[in-house]
Design a protein around this nucleic acid. Sequence first.
DNA 1: ATTTATTGTGTCATTAAGACATTAACTTAA
DNA 2: TTAAGTTAATGTCTTAATGACACAATAAAT
Lengths: 232, 232
Amino acid sequence: MTEHYDITEYKNPLFTVDSVLFTVKNGALKVLMVKRASEPFIGRWGLPGGFVDVDIDDSVSMTALRKLKEKTSVAPQYLEQLQTYSGINRDPRGFSVTLVYFALIAEAQVSTHIETVDDAKWIDLDEVNNLPVAFDHKYIIEQAKARLKQKALYSMAPVYCLPEHFTVGQFKSVIETIIGKPVQRKSIIRRIEAADMFETLDEKVKSGGRLAQLYKVKAGVDIVNFERNLSV
Amino acid sequence: MTEHYDITEYKNPLFTVDSVLFTVKNGALKVLMVKRASEPFIGRWGLPGGFVDVDIDDSVSMTALRKLKEKTSVAPQYLEQLQTYSGINRDPRGFSVTLVYFALIAEAQVSTHIETVDDAKWIDLDEVNNLPVAFDHKYIIEQAKARLKQKALYSMAPVYCLPEHFTVGQFKSVIETIIGKPVQRKSIIRRIEAADMFETLDEKVKSGGRLAQLYKVKAGVDIVNFERNLSV
DNA sequence: ATTTATTGTGTCATTAAGACATTAACTTAA
DNA sequence: TTAAGTTAATGTCTTAATGACACAATAAAT
């Protein structure tokens, strides 16, 4: 690097931040999509996101959160970077880079808000293909889904698709929805115990049979990862 | 998103691409660092990288490769995205975003080239702390090392720190250097067989004892990941 | 009371890794 | 030439976590 780089004389690529926000609703995996109100791809559906506002955002994760809050009114329970996608052809305005976040939220936490707006909607993962989608967001959603699936096999992260208080049955159901296969209830229970990141409540709920124990995430704990996958 | 975003009226953050290129040399984990020839942090050591050249680069991975080739003369054998790091304070020039790649290479492949230049050097991971390092690159290197360590537990990726032809003993040694613990030779052999991504050569090499079987990566195969970690 | 549904427990089978002994093949030095 | 030392490769038992599944507990419905 012998030259001196001057910001003003360098063509910076277009930089945006998008998020793939997942939830599980009625036994189906959903992704939050937004009807685009501006060019390019006006009228098509895309991921919630936009440009960094360097006067407001301390870092790009704040951009992601800010844009998600605009659509859902709350911050997601889980947020991590997925990947950046870039190229000369993915945006008609020129070379563009988008940093994509991967997020999870409990459906109940945002249902009322999402229902009142008509530019943001939960889209069933199976229906994304039938939708007019902006940019390469179809591909990005596929990649995010693969990451979520993988994560469900070795991590407790899917718990963030559940409400604060949840049962083993609900947890099992969310995992099965994500990975698309049945898992052993026993395996979930063993992991809940081994993870040591949940506490039982002094409360049980109806389930159609025996009352189900309620759990919640302990305060201040991190997501636990296991050293072995559930079998695929 | 009701407003229309015009590129020219929007302050784009500074966007750069950097790489953490690892290798294993003499039983020690090394990272490629570059003495900065320009501001900011002139004279300090940093990761190889720089700005995207939208007239040359089709995507940001090409930027990473181009910058690495400038320093090593060859493309790394393994390259994947690590993460982006951003913030208002990490670069004195303003809000900056850097996309960091994670790369592996066999030391022998670049040794002669690295030795002839004096602005790029293999730095022992244990010595990064004693070096004047630019930006938040010290922190980024730590994160990259953690990722490499994790990857060594469930993936065959560390094979890309080895020359084209390698023995089980060499593979074992690389893994042990990365994770900082001894592993069972038997475990490596089992994984080499299970992965089905290597072929044995009709050639053996001296080792101080019995001749060692040589292996190479099969053409066109992808890195295999296992569903279980080596024990930590 | 009996059936049905769901939760929770107990236990054996399965699978992949860890531990380690044994054998194989080559080098070095008495 | 032989014995000792070194590294490679294999055989096999143990260990740990998941899968499979039977069975017991508890509530609702009939």
